[in-house]
């Protein structure tokens, strides 16, 4: 996929109101593949931490017998991190305001994941 293709996939997510940035992250490395972030959001930190949390959560979910993760959502008092793992080993990540429409972000993350898979 080209850089323009990645950009179009991220557009799907960033156009949702309350989303402050979207990224594609290499799940194994925790490195940024592509991003569209508002100023002040540290892309490399988001990528590294989302990758690490995804990997730890994945192990817990497998042990619990609920299978691989399709979507996860870390809620904080001041914001949220929403992630959909794509088939290609890429994580599609959104950083959002706490009041964001989670259902809508989830749908757009799933669409973006399909596009980059």
């Amino acid at each position: 996929m080209t850089a323009a293709g990645f950009g179009r996939a991220l557009d799907l997510v960033t156009r949702v109101r309350g989303v402050r940035g979207a990224m594609l992250v290499s799940a194994a490395d925790g490195l940024v593949v592509a991003d569209q972030l508002m100023e002040g959001i540290k892309g490399p930190a988001v990528a590294a931490l989302a990758g690490s949390l995804a990997s730890r959560l994945g192990r817990a979910m497998t042990a619990a017998g609920v299978g691989e993760s399709v979507f996860w959502h870390l809620q904080g008092s001041g914001g949220a991190l929403l992630v959909v793992p794509a088939a290609s080993g890429i994580l599609v990540v959104a950083v959002a305001e706490p009041e964001v429409n989670v259902g809508l972000v989830r749908l757009e993350l799933l669409r973006a994941a399909e596009a980059v898979a």
């Binding site: 930190a45 690490s52 299978g67 996860w72 870390l74 809620q75």
Partner: peptide, 24 residues
């Protein structure tokens, strides 16, 4: 990791982590 991510990414205090798996 959830606590560290929330702190370093400026998300405040983490209040919950929900995940959708293929079987649950």
């Amino acid at each position: 990791e959830a606590a560290r991510s929330a702190k370093l990414l400026g998300l405040g205090t983490w209040t919950g982590l929900s995940a959708e798996g293929r079987q649950g």
